[in-house]
Design a protein around this nucleic acid. Structure first.
Lengths: 352, 352
DNA sequence: TAGCATCATTGAATCGATTCATTTCGATTC
DNA sequence: GAATCGAAATGAATCGATTCAATGATGCTA
């Protein structure tokens, strides 16, 4: 039954102190070779399974794991290509540092709080959560290093974000160069309230997600400079799922047939837009130009291939993990650069 | 510095026993409402952060986490669409049961053993590992529930596998019906030795991965029945990455130009084959018919769309997680069914 | 009013290691 | 031969909770 062999049993059987037995496993160099081998032999014979993980954790205070927290349900994280890239980067750094990766999973907010409280980890990575949220509060209460990714939650020991303003600006600049004049912006969700559809000025003024705020600002700055009135831009808040976007874009084009430039805040959204436009018989890029943000692999295979502003999500995840595991306070956010990736869904005017 | 507020401090300050203070947090119904609120108030005022996770674990013996172990490096797991689906299913069940998900990460075998030994989990999920392996041995030594997915490692408390034999058989049957007579089988890796290329009979006879063994057997059974000599089938062992497969298939078709049926053991491989065939000007399915196995989303968007034998990987992961967390010994492997999914990369003969 | 449940609380034992100040012992130096 | 040193081993304290048998208080019944 509950008769697990303990270190103290091994020590007794081998005729050494518990401290020495502990060292034989954890700090081999502190024990004479001969003696250590004897201890290990005795342990093996007794069926000792090695130091008890939880007991070691309690004593040392180290969990050997990095917690990764995604907003809302986890299913989304495992279906969004960008989130997966991010996880890949996190995984890479965790492997490098011999630390495991704990995915905090929950079906709802209440469960998420409990999951955070039960997670034996040394640091937290928080992706894309907005601030003032009970899950964030729970994480903060744990008093562990906490790194925000693509979010500027208060109390983070470090923050890794994309240069969203400049990324969005470059997308807008490019579509202007391609000749677009009547714009639609397909936004990611501005808040966690599950609201979709047309965004009025009030909604645009109270965006809780940093990513959305910055990208909007980037788009607007460039378009205003070009003499376009923000009030003339159609803003639609979309769920980050191609299938959902299809319907929204179909409606959008029916309502505003003169749109000739679509700025999507993610490639997933942009791909949904391309699909809708193909189905409704719009010519891309002849009639409408489309730009995404992210640079996901699938964008290279759409028809037409998707122009986008690429980011390196793997590296973003890796850096965030590195900062979290280092645990230092880094006051300045780490700002990652974007790269314009022109493919066929936008089109430069003929230079001939 | 190290002056964390402990439960005993709270108890003392609130004038109750440590046991009662513990109950106030963990078993609220055992403490009178009024008293409990007082304790919580005192705790809040003292800045108590809640029960110490590792101490609780040590005492209760429950980690509240499920370990997921992938073979080789983790990067692969996060780039294979099937593995991701699997993780999605695992995540779904973990969330349902309020358990976190620990991804055991490592760069090499030695690190993987250490990672397994340091993981505070209640059970392990092992994906696609072959047996007789030190990582598996380490997991076994932990003496926790261990569920094998797509693998039949000894000592597993439960096993979840695809009906690989029947899945492969149905793929072969379909290509025969479509008129193929000269077959190539594009195999997944038979072993962890990193060997690729043509598989001779000896190699085919010593396959350590169950998946490969079963699928080979399924293909062969059907093809033999149809009067095809196994010696006439070209076997190629491929890395499960479309880019690598492209080169292999290009060579293959140059060497064996009469191949008219390709049976790939995964969609990723099949997609690589389609790409190679397109580049070398082979007509699919007119000249060569191609079948995958898995049913990944991308297969619906290739040109031509990929015929395949679909499986439900999400559900596979979910069931495995459920079995692992239940912890019962299930002697019979859970066998999941496949479903033939005919698209344009194979072609049925005209019935006119 | 004794007897008996029921509910709330206590307090010491326990989970299984690691740590570190101290002791032991043999070798080296003066 | 005493003093000094370093390496190896000791053993008690510690990490911070949870558990459970025992105790106390309260209400109810006969």
């Amino acid at each position: 039954m509950g008769n697990r062999v303990r270190l103290v049993d091994v020590a007794r059987a081998a005729g050494v102190s518990q401290g020495t037995a502990s060292n034989a496993f954890g700090k081999p160099h502190l024990v004479r070779d001969e003696l250590r081998e004897k201890i290990l032999a005795v342990a093996a014979e007794m069926g000792y399974r090695g130091p008890h993980v939880m007991a070691r954790m309690l004593r040392t205070g180290k969990a050997g794991a990095l917690g990764v927290v995604f907003p809302d349900n986890l299913e989304y994280a495992f279906s969004d290509p960008v989130a997966i890239e991010l996880l890949r980067g996190v995984g890479r750094e965790c492997a490098r540092q011999s630390v495991n990766m704990m995915i905090i999973s929950a079906e709802n907010h209440e469960q998420a709080v409990a999951a955070v409280n039960n997670a034996a980890v040394d640091a937290f990575l928080v992706h894309c959560y907005s601030d003032n949220n009970d899950v964030i509060a729970a994480i903060r209460r744990r008093n562990l290093p906490m790194v925000g990714i693509d979010t500027d939650i208060a109390g983070a020991t470090a923050t890794v974000v994309l240069d969203d303003f400049e990324g969005a600006a470059s997308a807008a600049r490019h579509l202007l160069e391609c000749g677009a004049r009547k714009f639609a912006i397909l936004s990611l969700q501005a808040d966690e309230d599950g609201q979709f559809g047309l965004m009025d000025a009030r909604r645009r003024g109270a965006v809780s997600h940093r990513v959305v705020r910055e990208r909007l600002a980037g788009y607007h700055a460039v378009l205003k400079d070009a003499g376009i009135d923000v009030a003339d831009i159609v803003h639609v808040e979309c769920e980050n799922l191609s299938e959902h976007v299809r319907g929204q874009v179909t409606d959008l084009m029916a309502q505003f047939p003169d749109i000739d430039g679509i700025l999507a805040m993610s490639d997933v959204i942009a791909i949904g837009a391309l699909e809708a436009l193909a189905k409704t018989g719009h010519d891309v890029p002849g009639q409408v130009r489309v730009m995404g943000i992210d640079g996901v692999a699938r964008g290279a295979r759409t028809t037409p291939p998707l122009s986008t502003v690429a980011q390196n999500s793997v590296e973003k995840g890796r850096i965030a993990a590195e900062l979290a595991l280092a645990g230092d306070n880094v006051s300045e956010p780490v700002l990652l650069k974007t790269r314009l990736l022109v493919r066929a869904s936008s089109r430069l005017p003929d230079i001939s």
